[in-house]
Design a protein around this nucleic acid. Structure first.
Lengths: 347, 347, 347
DNA sequence: GCCGTTCTAGAATATTCGTAG
DNA sequence: CCTACGAATATTCTAGAACGG
């Protein structure tokens, strides 16, 4: 059934287990209605998701934060979680990176900020700045170093990719981790933290949806972004070509052909679509164009592989020129090509 | 096996004739004449409904809401109907599909809703969150799980269409779930809740009628719309080209060629007919024009085809360059092209 | 005696200069820098608020709602402020005017709202219907009746303006209480409820600012709007030409030349600037253009005039072919004429 | 230059008022 | 009185533009 991701999880189930204690178990809690049905689906395609709990320390840190914050928000706490530390070391750096960001930006992180341009200066995020948290980080780092790389066969690109996201391409614009990758990481880590009831992949990992916007924006977003406006998050989604799903089981979720749960590396291919400056002609979305063919094909191939692995399910090999996504690996979709281009192509 | 749509084969005539098939069993409802008798008809066309009583969480949830609200309004919810309330199997998919949206809307009324189109699932609605409801969910989920995976082998129409209502055109503004789809969902869910005595499909699922306007508007509408006037609901019907049936047993019902009980996907093809401003010429509703004769015939033909396809769905095998369903020929809406584009055409 | 508007006479300059008058009293609030200090300023400009504590039913009702909701959100409602909460007398009329609409709106939010177009006063809203509240209403009404008509010499245009927002233009479509007026009412009522710490007028009543976006959107907005997105509120502000103040002590507030605390009637002159479809050329927002200098000066002049007129109101004798207020010259919105017609002009 | 955040505007649907028939 | 529909505003989603790092 699922491939090897399972190895490193059930054994010591660090974070996730802890968090799983909190029980929105199965994320079917209060407000997940339809999503839960998806979780089944997700389980089918990625049954091992929960087991990836301990693959990185960002997760750890974030996990803690999540725990604390969620507790604060009247959600059952999970006392044990701290003991489990084991993300890979390289992510530690990332951790620190993000930490600075987040702390620095606490103003805008303040969930109270909302309208207009004022958000005050909500002093500091207590969780992030807490000494307690710092200590934990240290402790966990030690533990972490002893662990083997969890993402052995998983698609995690390479530890090094944090700094050079793409072998052929240096960091873009001074940003270490562009939005799509960060979002992908967020999703994995939230899932690892057992809070898929807040936000999670849906539709076999081909899209994601926010189930609890309030919690998401208040408790999770600040750990990854400096946005003080929820609309900023949306803007990023739009800029990268995510499309709001307006039908089907995942309605309300966001979809991007290159945003696939099992392939975080695909995120690197995503580019901002609206180029704003001068050159209106350049407005056509690069994402749509270039990515339109090869990237999608790649994605489809990967997706197909996943299908095969999943339950030895090898569907149609139509050999049509149509990418698999469309023809059936996941959903037979002839229009996949149309969609994206359509938006930019309009005018 | 088909759900029995063949029954109305013999009546491939316009609305009135079509509806006349329905037994003129004196309406027992408050203000509908023959409407209530339709439950029989529905049963005829979907005899197997009973088998899927507990197929969905959303249904459960909404059911509870309905029940509670209706009880609150001092009217017994008629337990018998409940047991007999079961859409046909093919609607199961639809249910799952729509589940998310339905819950989301509750959020959208909820001030906490925030991000992009997803806002979690009725996390704030007390009815939804009630423990009682949660238990129900659990129970039903177990039962539900006994069923085979919906997306597994259930032939989802098309992957891409799963995600986007219109594969060729990206959504630019507006809401996620337009009125017709929401209305269709409402009808299915009300039926699932066993309250077809308030509002239901009639005429073999080719139209719908409100049997108890008062209850409908007070107890059901608020769960789906934000309207405070019943006239707003009617305005929407008009905007989308529904026709009031003023003869025959289904008098008082509303009809639209693309509004068919068994085909929730048809709703996606429906377009607003009156495009608010400008383009007065384009105001002519294609529905009204073409619907008189041929459109209905076409629709009936399609419906017949659906029966055949129901068990094995082999879409677009048509040598035509555009399959009926896909291209919307059924809608017979030449102006559909004009209308929608009209807005953009303005420039 | 005038209500003190003369205080800002000396600052008849553009926004920034104008707002700079406000003492940059160090923001003491959580996230507002200089915003909270504005309460002082408000007091300066309307010192007599205390005298009219119980002047209106709507206020009472909403006040109760606010109190309850805010308490529920774990924040002490500050009883002292309550006693001090009193809009100026001239607002009484406005209050009554809006009462109907406001109550109705509560219905529309309420799932139990009555059918059809009547659903008079929040018959279903538990808060409104509570006996406790009813008693309060009675008591206060008696007290209130003892008061002399507050709007006697005030500038309220005419009671009849509810139905005809503009003498020259009859409302045909849309809502009864447009956004600006509703917003103005909101601000007054929030102040009356003693919660100016959440949202309030600033800059001598020439702008408003949201000090606690979270609370504002969660507790107050739902009482007035049906928005589920904060961005919708902002969109409305933009549509009506509000400008975000990005300098000075009132930074983060929103300004509109016709949005003045003491002149709720000015709100009626505000018009939507972006008229959805067509007429791209008309897109230029007149507000932005002209407002920069002269418009504000004009507005200031008007404000000064208001001081003089306040006791004896003899408006625009200007002999200009356009009275200041009526013709919107104050608004300096030449495009106002273009815009609205623009919609139909499309084609 | 590229990316992130925010403000503003465009575009589509939703809701309501008013009126003609 | 009621239906249908024009017209105006309301709400939401997407995209353009500005600014900063």
């Amino acid at each position: 059934m699922n491939s090897g991701n399972t190895q490193f999880d059930q054994s010591n189930t660090p974070v996730a287990a802890f968090l799983r204690n909190n029980a929105p178990t199965q994320g079917m809690g209060v407000d997940m209605s339809g999503q839960f049905g998806n979780s089944n689906i997700m389980m089918n395609s990625q049954p091992q998701v929960n087991q990836l709990n301990n693959f990185n320390l960002a997760e750890l840190k974030r996990l803690q934060q999540l725990q604390q914050q969620l507790q604060a928000t009247n959600q059952a706490p999970n006392p044990m979680m701290q003991s489990s530390a084991n993300p890979s070391a390289l992510l530690f750096q990332n951790y620190l990176d993000q930490k600075i960001q987040s702390t620095r930006f606490n103003d805008s992180l303040n969930p109270l900020a909302g309208v207009g341009g004022f958000s005050g200066m909500g002093s500091q995020n207590p969780l992030i700045n807490s000494n307690l948290f710092q200590e934990q980080l240290m402790i966990n780092q030690n533990v972490m170093n002893g662990m083997k790389s969890p993402s052995g066969e998983m698609a995690l690109p390479s530890p090094h990719s944090i700094f050079h996201r793409d072998g052929s391409r240096r960091m873009r614009g001074g940003v270490i981790e562009p939005f799509p990758e960060k979002l992908h990481r967020l999703l994995l880590e939230v899932e690892a933290a057992g809070r898929s009831d807040i936000i999670s992949f849906v539709a076999n990992g081909r899209a994601f949806a926010i189930h609890m916007p309030d919690k998401f924006f208040k408790d999770i977003v600040p750990l990854y972004f400096r946005q003080s406006r929820l609309s900023s998050f949306k803007r990023q989604l739009n800029l990268y070509g995510f499309e709001l799903i307006n039908t089907g089981p995942a309605r309300g979720g966001y979809f991007h052909e290159l945003f696939v749960k099992d392939r975080p590396d695909f995120c690197r291919k995503m580019r901002r679509v609206a180029v704003k400056v001068g050159a209106k002609s350049s407005k056509l979305s690069p994402t749509k164009e270039s990515q339109g063919e090869d990237a999608i094909e790649k994605a489809d191939k990967i997706l197909k592989q996943l299908d095969d692995e999943q339950s030895s399910r090898n569907d149609k090999q139509d050999s049509m020129e149509k990418p698999l996504i469309e023809s059936g690996s996941l959903h037979a979709e002839p229009a996949a090509v149309d969609i994206s281009p359509a938006t930019g192509a309009v005018e």
